[in-house]
């Protein structure tokens, strides 16, 4: 079946989704994180009544408002792409996948958008108490939006709470609570929102560092940095904890992704985690070469992370592709056989049902049910197709972890010199601080690349490969819209950054003004 598909179109559709998602993810983590910090600033203003805190709150609120608009625009385009480029996906799993997306729009986003208006335009128009309440509701609403989007994404990684309907050939939800409380959804939500708070802290530190270097708005910058460094330090500790939990879930339900993240081709007992390494681009699956041309490993840590036991076995890519009877791992070729049986029997069931042959339909359905968990493998032609791009997954994972290790040290340094009241003299730290927001963005992008590229070739893990999930379009059509979006998003980004830079240059209103 797969050989009839134009793989180029799939790659363009994936590239278009990745482009939109990465643009979207410039704006979203800032929204998710900075709303909590703005709520904090606003609370201090409410308690103290200080005009200085009011101006500080309004300044960060303005930057958030500029950011918010384009986050919404790119998010809507992402949802439309499910219909335009991934219509088979929408048709096959829309009953399940559409539910959290609809809830996000109707429940969380409307809540967030309504209170956003009160927060932004409510100064001196509503009571101080209701205004503060609105700011808090924006933080809660935006994070509730993240809940539902991440529930949808977690379902792609581990499709729980569903049943395949052989009559309609669609997946249908049979347990809403299982979908919502999917452990991957919970670990994704906590990891994503805490790392967003970390990112927002870096954003505030970058801008405030620039003010201190320029000798402008110094008290406001010192206050902003003190709060951001605390939020950043606490959230970065939680990011490490939730990252460990997220990796454990990956190891349990997506072992191929974990093996790609670590460039592990041959499974090991007491497997070590790669501290530093480089992927060998000449490596072919099944040859005698190591997957990494050089590596520094810490023994036992990967086994501990994957199975909570430092001596346990972690399967490598070749164990998962070719099978490992000693560890009861079924190879992909066996799964392909079972998947093709499932597809053949599904076809036989439909024909028998149409002809009114109840006995044949029942027999076919029984065979289908016995093999349905391998349904997606029936669309693959050779075992090696089940392996994601190892180099990109490995490099993205290690970049994310490396940056995630640096950030708490940055927050600690800013906190220490703020405490000592000598931050203004630390020019080296302030200069480094101005670029921290970009490193935060790279860490976030890397995380999503690990999550999405590491899941390939699946749109829905083990059930639906991307080659089947797509719309029947030509590659040229999708390539055209890819470049249209690239130009549109770049113009939007230039517009946003220039408006934001102008606001930063103007700075917060000073009390004496």
């Amino acid at each position: 079946m797969i050989e009839n598909f134009d793989l180029t179109m799939v790659n363009w559709a994936r590239a278009q989704f990745a482009l939109t998602a990465l643009y979207h993810w410039i704006f979203v983590p800032l929204t998710l994180g900075i709303t909590w910090i703005i709520a904090f600033y606003h609370t201090i203003y409410y308690r103290t009544g200080s005009e200085e805190w009011k101006n500080l709150t309004r300044f960060w609120m303005t930057l958030f408002g500029i950011n918010f608009a384009i986050g919404v625009a790119t998010g809507i385009i992402l949802e439309f792409e499910f219909g335009t480029n991934w219509s088979n996906y929408s048709w096959m799993v829309g009953d399940i996948f559409g539910a959290p997306l609809a809830i996000e729009g109707i429940f969380a986003f409307f809540l967030e958008a309504t209170f956003f208006a009160v927060m932004f335009f409510g100064w001196n128009r509503v009571s101080k108490k209701f205004h503060l309440f609105s700011t808090w509701m924006v933080a809660i609403g935006s994070n509730l939006s993240a809940v539902w989007i991440l529930v949808a994404n977690a379902w792609m990684q581990r499709p729980v709470g569903q049943v395949f309907n052989p009559d309609s050939a669609r997946f249908e939800m049979n347990n809403f609570a299982e979908v919502v409380f999917n452990p991957i959804a919970v670990s994704k939500f906590t990891h994503t929102t805490s790392s967003s708070m970390l990112f927002a802290s870096l954003f505030i530190i970058s801008i405030s560092s620039w003010y201190l270097l320029k000798g402008r708005h110094e008290k406001m910058a010192r206050r902003s940095i003190m709060v951001a460094a605390v939020f950043g330090l606490v959230s970065s500790a939680f990011v490490g904890f939730t990252g460990d939990e997220a990796a454990y879930e990956v190891a349990q339900h997506q072992p191929m992704k974990l093996a790609a993240m670590e460039g592990l081709y041959k499974g090991e007992e007491g497997a070590g985690i790669v501290l530093m390494g480089m992927v060998d681009s000449d490596k072919k699956i099944g040859d005698d070469q190591d997957g990494l041309s050089f590596k520094i490993k810490i023994p036992g840590i990967l086994s501990l992370l994957a199975n909570r036991s430092s001596g346990s076995f972690v399967p490598g890519i070749e164990d998962l592709v070719y099978g490992n009877p000693d560890h009861k791992i079924m190879g992909v070729d066996d799964k392909i056989v079972k998947g093709k049986i499932a597809l053949t029997q599904l076809d036989a069931y439909k024909k028998a049902s149409k002809n009114g042959d109840t006995a044949a339909a029942t027999a076919a359905l029984t065979m289908f049910q016995a093999n349905k968990e391998y349904l997606g493998y029936g669309f693959l032609t050779k075992p090696e197709e089940a392996v994601p791009p190892v180099g990109l997954t490995f490099n993205a994972f290690h970049l994310m972890v490396a940056l995630g290790t640096v950030f708490p040290l940055v927050f600690l340094a800013f906190l220490y010199f703020s405490w000592k009241d000598t931050l203004k003299e630390q020019k080296w730290l302030l200069k480094g601080g101005t670029v921290m927001v970009f490193l935060g963005l790279f860490a976030h992008w890397s995380g999503w690349i690990v999550a999405e590229v590491g899941r390939q070739p699946w749109a829905i893990q083990d059930l639906l490969p991307v080659t089947v999930a797509r719309t029947n379009l030509t590659a040229g059509t999708v390539a055209t819209t890819f470049f249209m979006f690239l130009i549109l998003f770049t113009l939007l980004l230039i517009a946003e950054v220039s408006i934001m830079l102008r606001q930063i240059n103007i700075g917060p209103k000073e009390v004496s003004e």
């Binding site: 909590w36 904090f40 609370t43 201090i44 103290t48 409380f181 452990p183 919970v186 670990s187 939500f189 906590t190 929102t193 805490s194 708070m197 008290k219 010192r222 206050r223 003190m226 709060v227 605390v230 939020f231 606490v234 959230s235 939680f238 904890f241 939730t242 939990e245 906190l415 703020s418 405490w419 009241d421």
Partner: peptide, 30 residues
């Protein structure tokens, strides 16, 4: 684990708030 993670998430926000207020007061930035 789900409940524990979500409770820790709430604790992250509460601890950040309390620590930030305490430090602002200590450094006369409140």
């Amino acid at each position: 684990m789900n409940t524990f993670l979500l409770l820790c998430w709430v604790a992250m926000i509460v601890v950040s708030y309390q620590a930030a207020i305490a430090l602002l007061k200590k450094t006369d930035l409140y």
